[in-house]
Amino acid sequence: MENFEPVIVAFCCHYCAYTAADMAGSQRLPYPSNVKIIRVPCSGKVDALHITKAFEKGADGVYVAGCLDGDCHFKNGNDKAAKLVTYVQNYLEEIGLEPERLEMVRISAGMGDRFALIATEITEKIRKLGPSPIKTVAA
């Protein structure tokens, strides 16, 4: 458990969160390498299928990162994503997975520091939760 390195998938929208991740890079703000980013045009593009597949394959945590409230490039994709995340959280609970392993976050393009902070906080949270039970069963 002590050496547990969680694998975390971050679905990041192209316009805000992904840009913020690049910004963290250009400002050389470190965050844990456990976070793997998958770029999507809008956080609203993230499907329940993608999230559950990530857990099925062995992700210890997943987060969907969209624009700040009201800032969505596509009007309200981020709000739709937030609703979907809540829905999938309930579903995770039903199948016996901690819903905290999934999270919705909001970051604007200029917030490289916030991106690094969130990545660090979520990694620490998942590290405390321990490995995903799905992985334990599969192993």
């Binding site: 499907d47 993608h50 062995g58 192993a139």
Partner: peptide
């Protein structure tokens, strides 16, 4: 950004893990 592309990314990421 088709589903099979996104799912393929996930599969590749966890190739080693599982």
């Amino acid at each position: 950004f088709e589903d099979d592309q996104i799912l393929s990314k996930l599969e590749q990421l966890f190739e080693e893990v599982v």
